[in-house]
Design a protein around this nucleic acid. Structure first.
Length: 213
DNA sequence: CGGAAGATCTTCT
DNA sequence: GAAGATCTTCCGG
């Protein structure tokens, strides 16, 4: 028989821990995104930890700015940024407050609302690709900067919530270098994913884009 | 399948 | 002014 995933919300305390503890613990948890079109539920299969102001790969490394403001706020809130001229990516802020650490949600399996997700991800060739990659994940869920700062762990039915789901046993969690991170930040093996899961995105090392003539 | 290049624009230097 | 926590399409093997 199949264990029903736990639909209770994750607590603030869950996120109020060091980001390297929270990141692997987020695998198997469920993110629910609700809009007027209906709900989408996503089971997280791949994340990356960004260790706040100590981490050269982190948006918070060079201090507080208008963009990363939310990272310096309370844990359990959502940090959304815009990148490469057309994509959004989402993070969950971790503790302690002011450390500005966060977990980038890189990939997941859509377990509810796949029909709706497909309408936002027309280029996806199959359902495994709907949220395979951080920008794809945000696109599938209809997440943009208007959700920056949203509290993801309230008991109320907000547009974005984290539920307990079913944590992945540590022997099924793999880790390695972060994708697309350049310079000194690339050395940390702070990308975590579920072993043998087809929704995990392929690893790509950072490549500086060639300058246009 | 793998590599190259384009798309597109905010953010910080 | 340059680079970016990316994705898609196009091309060659």
């Amino acid at each position: 028989m199949i264990a029903t995933p736990d639909r209770t919300p994750l607590s603030r305390e869950f996120f109020d821990r060091p980001v390297l503890d929270v990141a692997p613990d987020l695998l198997g948890r469920i993110l629910v995104r609700t809009t007027s079109d209906g709900p989408i539920a996503l089971r997280l299969t791949e994340v990356e930890a960004y260790d706040g102001s100590d981490d050269p790969g982190s948006h918070a490394y060079r201090g507080r700015t208008a963009r990363n403001e939310v990272m310096f706020g309370p844990p359990g809130h959502v940090y959304v940024y815009f990148t490469y001229g057309m994509w959004f990516c989402m993070n969950l802020v971790c503790g302690p407050e002011d450390k500005a650490s966060a977990v980038l949600l890189r990939a997941g399996e859509i377990i509810e609302g796949a029909e709706l997700a497909r309408t936002r991800r027309l280029s996806a060739r199959n359902d495994k690709e709907l949220a395979k990659g951080p920008a794809r994940l945000a696109t599938a869920l209809g997440v943009d900067r208007s959700l920056d700062g949203t509290d993801a762990c309230t008991p109320e039915d907000t547009p974005l919530r984290m539920l307990a789901g079913s944590p992945v046993p540590s022997d099924q969690v793999l880790n390695g270098p972060r994708t697309g991170v350049s310079g000194d930040g690339a050395v940390h093996p702070w990308r975590f994913w579920v072993a043998d899961d087809a929704t995990v995105s392929p690893y790509r090392a950072h490549v500086p884009r060639r300058r246009r003539s």
